[in-house]
Computed example of a mutant assay.
Amino acid sequence: MSNWKTAYRSFYYENAEEPDDLLLPPAETALLVIDIQNTYLEVPDDPVEAARWQPFFDRMNTQVIPNTVTLADWARKVGIEVIFARIACQKDDGRDRSLSQKKPGFNYLLLPKDREDSQMVPELTPQGDEITVLKTTDSALTGTNLRLILHNMGIRNVIVAGIFTDQCVSSSVRSLADESFNVVVVEDCCAAAMEDLHRRELEIINMIYCHVVQSEDVFATSP
């Protein structure tokens, strides 16, 4: 078992007392899978750019996607609701996107909702009546009716997996925490473009907005 209670401590929490054990009653818990979409697994045509992103692709294909599949299967087995959030605009020209997704650079995203590159990767296709929220914002809570969905379903705890740790994952975690949800981020089911960015962001959000754990820690909460 990982020692999640003392890991990923920032300056603010170096000497803080250890948190309580994880309690994730299935009826009050949801797993939120954020933005693991086809577009992010497309290798750039430019070989230099492709090489720059290769560590991210390696982490996604060997760790994040397989681990998230296992996490989702576990959640379904124990009765935890699985919910997906993906970046997708309603208008083909993207007029409905938030400003953060219209700015030039990496975060410029034009992903019409029905286009193949905007879909979740095949391994994480929603099953049955599992809910998918479409967002044109970084936060899965701010730009969707997810808040209402969670409240209506009696959810108090949200397990978070997905990408990018330092962008949409972090924004969603902060929004959820501000709405008084108990949030657990599964480190081995998340990724940023660089390992350093991934780790630094986890240190920033840990203890105040969420608890950062490993998937094995989440599995250990079920009887």
Rank of each mutant, 00 (worst) to 15 (best):
I163G: 04
S118C: 05
R199C: 08
G143M: 02
I208Q: 08
F219K: 11
I36V: 02
E49V: 15
Q54V: 08
S222A: 15
L150D: 02
C189G: 00
K91G: 04
A193S: 13
T6A: 13
S139K: 00
F181H: 03
V33C: 06
T221H: 10
T70N: 15
R76I: 08
H198R: 06
T132R: 01
T165N: 08
S175N: 10
S222E: 12
E179H: 15
Q63W: 07
V43F: 07
T165R: 01
I159P: 00
F181Q: 00
L99N: 07
L150F: 09
G105P: 02
R95A: 12
L24W: 02
K5Y: 03
A72K: 00
R115M: 10
D73I: 13
L124K: 02
F181N: 06
S172G: 01
R52M: 15
A192Q: 05
D178L: 14
G154A: 06
D21M: 13
L41N: 07
D129L: 06
N107Q: 08
R156Y: 07
S172T: 05
R86S: 08
S2N: 15
G154H: 09
L111C: 06
T62P: 04
K102F: 03
L71V: 04
R97P: 04
I204V: 14
L176Y: 09
G128D: 12
I204F: 10
T165D: 04
I155C: 00
P66C: 11
A161E: 03
H151I: 13
